[in-house]
């Protein structure tokens, strides 16, 4: 586990390769990000199985785990219903990325290197958003979606095009840079401060701000912006 966690006594924020393999003449690496994401996937699947078990014999008056399951479901439902015109189509996707990004961001709290502090992960999420925007835009407005690039006058086409391409880059870079800043500051604190300051619960305040607060806000912002972008083009 030494490679996965941030060790005390060294300021190290880099993603480390664990082992490599050759494919089509190129070297690919299995990195700490992959392992972190696998751990988080296992956690999510476990939570989902527990939630499914708790809802199997659901009662009219909820108690125990059914309460928690209903709380999370209602939270996501409310968020999507407030912000979208066709909430039924997107509530599953938004719920999925919400839980995934939230657990990835909170991973730093449990000694993992947050998978969202890797641009590969966040850019993939940004590309999914990009695909959703334009798939739903073309499906709803047909050619009107392409015509939107030439508004208000055809002269604006290059500017609108750059604006569309900047969307996924900007939302993925926002999430990535926030999580990277958190990882960097925690690594500096553990690596550079004297021994006393890294123990006795003093870093807990930094973890509370950088991992929990910032992580929750950025999860919320990512989901809100995805919904706003998709909704705008529909």
């Amino acid at each position: 586990m030494g490679l996965l966690a941030l060790d005390s006594g060294q300021a190290d924020i880099m993603i480390k390769g664990l082992f490599s393999y050759e494919l089509f003449g190129q070297t690919f690496w299995i990195t700490t990000t992959h392992i972190g994401m696998l751990i988080i996937d296992i956690v999510i699947i476990t939570i989902a199985l527990i939630a499914r078990h708790s809802m199997k014999n659901a009662q009219m008056v909820p108690k125990g785990l059914q309460n928690v399951t209903e709380l999370i479901t209602e939270l996501v439902d409310k968020l999507v219903h407030e912000n979208m015109k066709q909430p039924k189509k997107f509530v599953n996707y938004i719920g999925t990325i919400f839980i995934f990004i939230l657990l990835c961001n909170l991973g730093g709290l449990f000694g993992l290197r947050s998978p969202t502090a890797d641009f590969g992960v966040t850019f993939a999420l940004g590309l999914i958003t990009f695909g959703l925007i334009h798939y739903n835009g073309i499906k709803t407005n047909k050619l009107g979606h392409v015509k939107g690039l030439f508004e208000p006058v055809p002269f604006f086409f290059p500017i609108n095009l750059i604006g569309e391409i900047a969307n996924p880059i900007s939302i993925s870079l926002r999430l990535f840079a926030n999580m990277l800043a958190g990882t960097l500051i925690m690594a500096l604190w553990y690596g550079v401060m004297p021994w006393l300051f890294t123990k006795l619960g003093i870093p807990a305040f930094l973890h509370a701000y950088l991992d929990v607060f910032s992580g929750c806000i950025q999860t919320y912002v990512f989901c809100m912006l995805t919904m706003a972008y998709v909704d705008e083009k529909m």
Binding site: S170, L173, R174, A177, N178, I217, V221, L225
Partner: peptide, 9 residues
């Protein structure tokens, strides 16, 4: 959080 983006760049 949105205004923070330019600083993060």
């Amino acid at each position: 959080a949105v205004a923070e983006t330019t600083g993060l760049y």
